[in-house]
């Protein structure tokens, strides 16, 4: 009767349509709006940075997998592309190519592959790469080109500072808040649309939110982490602003500037380095929000998102241990 040899395996015999590839390429797709905005404001430089970052991440992924991990190469699963794009989103558009390559090496080689590849890294690879660059090349990493709409010439554009840097500098010089806000050339609408100085992908709140909504729709992320981070930041800075509006910026300013949305939507939600349960995700999000505000308001750096996420990444195993899901039929001891 049967000609074929039958396959025998344990149940279940049916499989869902999820796959690592689908998730990773879903994230890539969600980053496209922000990428388009960056091209719109920074010109071809944005594409250059992205291509270099993606290509070098793919190369290092292949290289380490082939020569150090000795497994099947996994570059096709898309995770290196995500890391590359996130790294590119986190640097200024005029960054020299060799710095980007170093960043990719740190991101993939040190932060990801040395722990055993995809899924085993405790820290977000792109952020490790970015922070490494920020500390090693502070000048290049904080020289932001001024935005110029649809400027496709590759000439050295004028440079300027981010609103957050202007804020920090102003406060350090003892200026009052109204003076600082007046000196910042960007309005809230500009910030929302993306017309401000900053890293490649972090400028446009609108594009990031569209990407976030897409990922929510595709069920790649849940709402818990972004909402917890943004909510915490809004409440925390709101309290500070309420206490002294002349010394502290508005919550809206904090949310729209810097890497806040990019971090909350794309970086902190990285599955590998975020907690497993919803309860844990909220704790994690609150932690990131509080640390970010602490660094922004009282720290030496104008921006604290990447540090906050990395610090909370380190706490994730503990959070996972504290926040077990509620077991079905658990007998609660009185």
């Amino acid at each position: 009767m049967a000609i074929n040899k039958l396959t025998v395996s344990m149940s279940p015999h049916d499989y869902g349509k999820n796959s690592v590839k689908k998730i990773m390429y879903g994230v890539v797709l969600a980053m496209v709006p922000a990428l388009l905005v960056s091209v719109y404001f920074f010109g071809l430089d944005a594409i250059r940075v992205n291509l270099i970052a993606i290509a070098s991440c793919l190369f290092f992924e292949w290289f380490f997998q082939k020569f150090f991990l000795k497994g099947n190469t996994t570059i096709a699963d898309g995770s290196a592309i995500v890391t590359g794009m996130l790294l590119a989103f986190n640097v200024p558009s005029n960054l020299p190519w060799w710095i980007i390559v170093i960043g990719s090496l740190v991101a993939i080689g040190i932060a990801k592959m040395s722990f055993g590849g995809l899924g085993n890294n405790p820290f977000n690879p792109a952020l490790v790469g970015r922070v490494f660059l920020l500390i090693s090349f502070p000048v290049q990493m904080t020289t932001w080109p001024k935005v110029s709409v649809l400027n496709f010439t590759m000439t050295d554009a004028e440079t300027g500072a981010t609103p957050l840097a202007l804020l920090k500098e102003g406060l350090n010089n003892g200026k009052s808040m109204t003076e600082i806000i007046d000196s910042i050339p960007t309005s809230y609408v500009d910030m929302f649309m993306g017309q401000m100085g900053g890293s490649l992908g972090e400028i446009s709140a609108l594009a990031l939110i569209i990407g976030g909504l897409y990922m929510l729709f595709r069920k790649i992320i849940t709402w818990h982490i972004p909402v917890a981070i943004l909510g915490t930041v809004a409440i925390f800075t709101g309290i500070l602003w309420g206490i002294d509006p002349t010394k502290y910026a508005t919550p809206l300013f904090h949310i729209f500037t810097g890497g806040m949305l990019l971090g909350a939507i794309f970086m902190a939600t990285d599955m590998v380095t975020s907690p497993m349960t919803h309860k844990g995700m909220i704790i994690y999000g609150i932690g990131i929000g509080v640390i970010t505000v602490l660094i922004r308001v009282w720290g030496a750096y104008p921006e604290g998102m990447s540090f906050a996420i990395l610090i909370m990444n380190a706490v994730v195993p503990l959070i996972n241990n504290w926040t077990k899901p509620k077991r079905f039929g658990e007998i609660i001891k009185n």
Binding site: L118, G119, M271, M276, K324, P325, K326
Partner: peptide
């Protein structure tokens, strides 16, 4: 079965487990 990859800690298994296990 589809080829298996590394766990990416997406926590989907936790959210679908009807018994609340990990």
């Amino acid at each position: 079965r589809p080829k298996s990859y590394n766990c990416i800690r997406c926590a989907r298994c936790i959210s679908v487990c009807p018994m609340g296990l990990e």
